[in-house]
């Protein structure tokens, strides 16, 4: 089960999707809007996506996981739009017969999602400024200062 949603994520329901009597272990990851990044204060985040490609890449990620680990179930829900502090931006659940596989697959899932899936967050800082987060790209490019 894979989805992009503008609504709050029901992570209980998402977790139930991967639970079964064949799975002795269920691991759930919840990405949550955090207030402090170092000394900078966040008020809110705005998430945007390239939806068709994001869904395709999430599906690919699930298939990669199914090839690498004997998982019983995988579910991902990523929220888009305006999120306040404490809101859940992403929920990823993995189940497997034994816990080691579920922890490994769950870690791989969220790590890869963050580098592969075309979704972006924009910081709304407490000082009133906003800034798209693009890892490896200078936060304020010279052309924007001109």
């Amino acid at each position: 089960m894979i989805e992009l949603t503008h609504d709050p994520i029901d992570y209980t329901q998402l977790t139930e999707r991967v639970r079964s009597d064949q799975a002795g272990a269920v691991v759930l990851f919840l990405g949550t809007v955090r207030e402090m990044t170092g000394s900078r204060q966040t008020l809110a985040l705005d998430y945007d996506a390239y939806p068709e490609m994001a869904l395709a890449q999430m599906q690919r990620l699930v298939e990669d996981i199914q090839q690498r680990w004997p998982v019983t179930g995988v579910a991902i829900s990523h929220r888009l739009g305006h999120l306040e502090l404490g809101d859940i931006s992403v929920a990823a659940a993995v189940s497997s017969p034994h816990r080691a596989q579920a922890f490994e697959a769950g870690r791989f899932l969220i790590d890869e999602l963050k580098v592969r899936v075309p979704i972006w967050k924009k910081e709304n800082w407490a000082d009133g400024s906003t800034e798209w987060v693009h890892p490896g790209v200078p936060s304020t490019a010279p052309a924007e200062q001109e």
């Binding site: 990405g31 998430y47 996506a49 390239y50 490609m53 994001a54 990523h78 931006s89 992403v90 969220i110 999602l113 963050k114 580098v115 592969r116 899936v117 075309p118 979704i119 972006w120 967050k121 798209w132 987060v133 693009h134 890892p135 490896g136 790209v137």
Partner: peptide
Amino acid sequence: VAAFPPVSGG
């Protein structure tokens, strides 16, 4: 074609 800067979901 789509063109975009590095992603930052999660």
